[in-house]
């Protein structure tokens, strides 16, 4: 496998005028295509700074960043926007959906900036909503969706441009444990079935444990980098289990969310963590 991300001796210094803050002090990392990587670290460790640089939202003060073989560490804001648009997909902690736009319009957004025709945008966005099991919610506004559904819309948006890498920044941070498992299961499925490269930033070991490889950042440096030989399998709801493997059945979750009757029929225990979030 060839490395899709290669960073060498990345430094990032924030100059706040009075003090210089060294957020990253020489980080080197290589990520191969098809990996599911978790970047872990406490707050202030520099993991978010690393994420921003990997996501081409920010530029390193020094060091080299090869993304898909292209050196992106010296690109200007326009070029970085193009890279983000073509090669990266973001999933954020706070979902970051446009409030006044429907789920479908939110998913279409990256294609709008890629100059894709309206009809093609619609077709591709619907396909991705279907992938995350929300095709029937295409016309809903974010505040008409649960937190888990909103995050799945965000995942569909992140995938709509067929990105080389899916970047997730604390994707379960705003979700209850049951919904968090759902989202992590979604990532694992994308990784396993579609070979999607995923980099996920988190401060929770429980969450990081779902990845294949865990990189620990401490004080702006890589403190540990190890393979997670037996990643924890995200727990699916029983409705999926009852119907056998959920792989290849992406709509099981949607059906679950949509119809309490079906849930009841599936005999799922209404866990205490099942809380519908409205953002």
């Amino acid at each position: 496998m060839k490395p899709i991300i290669q960073i060498e001796e990345i430094h990032k210094i924030y100059d706040t005028g009075a003090v210089q803050v060294q957020a990253l002090r020489g980080v080197s990392l290589s990520v191969e295509e098809g990996e599911f990587l978790a970047i872990m670290g406490a707050s202030g460790s520099g993991k978010s700074t690393l994420m921003n640089i990997l996501g081409c939202l920010d530029r390193p003060t020094s060091g080299r960043y090869l993304l898909d073989g292209e050196d992106v560490s010296k690109l200007n804001r326009y070029q970085l926007a193009r890279i983000r648009n073509r090669k990266l997909g973001f999933v954020f902690q706070g979902f970051n959906l446009l409030k006044r736009h429907t789920a479908l319009e939110n998913v279409e957004l990256p294609l709008l900036y890629a100059g894709v025709s309206a009809r093609e945008r619609r077709r591709r966005a619907l396909a991705k909503l279907e992938l995350v099991g929300l095709a029937d919610r295409a016309g809903h506004l974010p505040n008409q969706l649960s937190g888990g559904q909103q995050q799945r819309v965000a995942i569909a948006r992140a995938l709509v441009n067929e990105p080389r890498i899916l970047l997730a920044d604390e994707p379960t941070g705003n979700l209850d444990s049951v919904t968090s498992e759902e989202i992590l299961a979604e990532f694992q499925r994308l990784h396993r079935d579609l070979g999607q490269t995923i980099i996920m930033v988190t401060h929770e070991l429980d969450v990081a444990d779902h990845a294949q490889r865990i990189v620990l950042i401490r004080d702006g440096k890589v403190a540990d980098d190890r393979s997670n030989l037996r990643p924890r399998e995200a727990r699916r709801r029983r409705v999926a289990d009852a119907n056998g493997s959920d792989i290849g059945r992406p709509h099981a979750l949607a059906a679950d969310d949509r119809s309490p009757a079906l849930v009841a029929a599936g005999g799922r225990e209404p866990g205490p963590g099942v809380v519908r979030e409205t953002a």
């Binding site: 996501g55 939202l57 804001r77 326009y78 926007a81 193009r82 983000r84 648009n85 073509r86 973001f90 954020f92 970051n96 959906l97 446009l98 957004l109 990256p110 900036y113 890629a114 948006r157 441009n161």
Partner: peptide
């Protein structure tokens, strides 16, 4: 501002 941030993250250039 937040909307602008979202649009930029998904690939809107400063020109867009």
């Amino acid at each position: 501002t937040r909307e602008i941030g979202i649009r930029m993250a998904v690939g809107a250039t400063p020109g867009d």
